[in-house]
Design a protein around this nucleic acid. Structure first.
Lengths: 189, 189
DNA sequence: CTTGGCTATGCAACGAGTTGCATAGAAGGA
DNA sequence: TCCTTCTATGCAACTCGTTGCATAGCCAAG
């Protein structure tokens, strides 16, 4: 049971359709979870069957009808239970790490390229999340907002997202530099 | 195909049994991948069937016999192909983020506890990885080692591991503080 | 002397995530 | 006009990861 709670969490902020959720979870909802549309539609069906969310049909003209979902009392209770239970530790799981692990044994050229691509992807995400942060806190400065803001949850997870991307970017650039410099100083095979 | 390459990467450094790999992958092999023993035994069987690794039986006294595996030429080729292919972006996937996302809507007490537990777990891992780094680079300082060291792959992934854990620790402590302070200044429900 | 942990391997069932595909009308650009 | 993209939902097959269990002898601590 992993995605269910992320969906319930997202639906706490209002009514959303599967499609809307899918777009949010595609980016990673400010880095707090990621999922594909298929997963979300399936999960919503299951959640509805179990009474944790309820949906209402909205008839639209000029575009397909949709179903908007909201969390029920049972769903809120489920979330509270989840929040109280212990979470298991998280791991990084990234193909790039495996590649770097063996980069000095096999070719480095392609790995360096990938590191730099990742770095600029991370940079882009940092920008994006930075804008999101500014938008979430409005006029207030961060300290002020975190002390008195109404809805700080998304802001807090977004902070983690940014920090993660910054760490990722810095590491990618550092490693790319290290590998590049070794190419010039070492005999390349 | 995800774990296979991590296993091949690990076996590049020598001959290991499933059990030895399991211990390394339990910690997370310096944060470059994580897997359970069952997965590893299954993967080793598959890799052997496909000729990417080869194993030899070692008869032992006073303890069960074991099979030591090494990478074949085909396995090395497979790894090179993998390293050249594009890797897809990575996401954080952590229950704690979901909990923080909704912490201001439901209870915060248990979330704060979990954040602090996580922070000290991260601290412990930072210590551990720090020792591993010192061990890997021996007498040399970091710059020197990264320029001329023989086997820097594990060092580089370990650097990412440390940075990740530091980011995690800092975020956990920050968020715990924020949530605590809100408890005193806000009307708690 | 019993209990628990370590070495060592593996099967079976299940849960979670990914890939591929199908439908279908409307809007907008080449 | 044709092609693509957007809205909107979902099934089916598959791969990957987790949980639970089984075996079995050795060693150390209580």
């Amino acid at each position: 049971m992993a995605l269910r709670h992320a969906v319930l969490a997202a639906l706490l902020d209002g009514e959303y359709s599967g499609y809307q959720l899918a777009k949010a979870f595609d980016v990673g909802v400010a880095n707090f979870w990621h999922a594909l549309p298929q997963q979300l539609y399936a999960e919503l069906t299951r959640l509805e069957k179990e009474g944790l969310v309820a949906g209402r049909q909205v008839i639209q003209e000029n575009r397909p009808n949709k179903r908007l979902f909201h969390v029920t009392d049972a769903g809120r209770a489920e979330l509270e239970e989840f929040a109280a239970a212990v979470a298991k530790p998280s791991f990084i799981r990234d193909d790039l790490l495996v590649k770097v692990q063996v980069a000095d044994r096999i070719g480095t050229a392609s790995v360096i390229e990938q590191l730099e691509e990742r770095a600029s992807a991370a940079e882009a995400k940092i920008e994006l999340l930075g804008k999101l942060l500014r938008q979430l806190r409005g006029d207030a400065d961060e300290e002020e907002f975190l002390r008195r803001g109404e809805r700080i949850g998304p802001y807090l997870t977004c902070l983690r997202g940014i920090a993660f991307e910054q760490g990722h970017r810095d590491w990618c650039l550092r490693i790319a530099t290290v590998l590049r410099e070794r190419r010039t100083t070492h005999a390349e095979r």
